[in-house]
Simulated scan of single mutants.
Amino acid sequence: MSSQGPLEVKRLKVEPGWIDYNGHMNVAFYLFAFDRGYDVFMDRIGVDQAFRERTGGTIFTGEAHVSYHAELKLDAPIALTLQVIGYDRKRLHTFMTMRHAEEDFLAATVEWMSLFVDLNTRRVAEMPDEIYAALDAIGRAHAALPRPAAVGKSIAMPAPKR
């Protein structure tokens, strides 16, 4: 693993069915694209289909915060990156970016809090050593990266005056 930057996890393009009535990528498909990239990351740390079938272990999303920065239009090429922000045996905090793959502008970000779950009990459980070791290798490399400014950002506006 390189400590030079976040992992590029997936490249794809905006599909015709992802376009909404405003002529750009619908909000739901930003999250869909991020999810496809997160699946690649899960495979990379060993939480793939074979692992799920063998152990009943998987990763669930506990919380996700999406921020939209720029429109993406039909056929736009997308590059997704993922940075591990924090982790322990049960939780995984990641931050992903979606950039236009040719023009390099930031289109969106998502911050995830994920949980390792035992599908047999449907409860949060500890990651097995093999998964934790793979995650730890990436997490250690990413520890040297700057923390994205948007991590931990919340939505807020002043209460209306009455």
Rank of each mutant, 00 (worst) to 15 (best):
T81C: 04
Y132K: 05
E111Q: 15
G37D: 01
A144P: 12
M96S: 13
H142P: 00
V14E: 14
V110E: 03
I131N: 06
D75M: 11
V117K: 00
R89G: 03
T81L: 05
L119T: 05
D39P: 15
L92R: 12
H100Y: 13
G86Y: 02
W112N: 09
I78F: 04
V14S: 14
E103V: 12
G56H: 08
I155E: 15
H100N: 08
L145G: 06
A64Q: 11
V151S: 03
T58E: 11
M157L: 10
A141F: 00
V47T: 00
F34A: 08
G5M: 13
V84I: 08
F116K: 13
A125N: 02
E71K: 11
V110L: 13
D88P: 04
R36G: 14
T109L: 10
K90C: 04
R36C: 12
K153M: 05
K90G: 08
A107E: 03
D48T: 06
D35S: 12
L82C: 07
A144E: 15
R91M: 12
N26W: 04
A108V: 07
I138N: 00
Q4F: 06
H69F: 11
K161P: 03
S114D: 07
D35F: 02
W112M: 09
G17P: 02
L31K: 06
R36A: 15
I138A: 02
Q4R: 10
A33T: 15
D39Y: 11
E126K: 06
H93M: 04
F105H: 07
Y68A: 06
S114K: 01
I155L: 15
A144F: 14
I19M: 09
H69P: 05
L82N: 07
F105G: 01
T121V: 03
I45P: 03
R36S: 15
Q49R: 09
F34M: 15
I85Y: 00
R11K: 13
L115P: 03
A108R: 01
G139K: 01
D104G: 04
F60Y: 14
T55I: 11
P77Q: 08
F95T: 00
K73V: 09
E71L: 14
G62T: 02
V40F: 13
L72A: 15
E103H: 11
I138D: 02
L145H: 09
R99W: 10
Q4E: 04
G152F: 00
H65R: 14
E15L: 14
A125I: 03
N120R: 06
A143R: 11
H24V: 06
P148A: 07
I138W: 02
A133H: 08
S67N: 04
A28Q: 07
M25K: 03
A134S: 09
I45T: 08
V9G: 00
L31A: 14
I138L: 02
Y38G: 05
M1K: 03
F51V: 07
M42E: 06
L106M: 13
G46V: 03
S67P: 00
Y21H: 12
A101D: 13
A150W: 06
P6L: 07
E103L: 12
S154H: 15
G56D: 08
A150Y: 02
Y21F: 05
V40P: 11
K10R: 13
D104P: 02
R123V: 03
A133M: 02
R54H: 10
G57H: 10
A149L: 13
P16S: 05
L115E: 01
T109A: 13
A137P: 09
D39I: 15
E126L: 08
L119I: 05
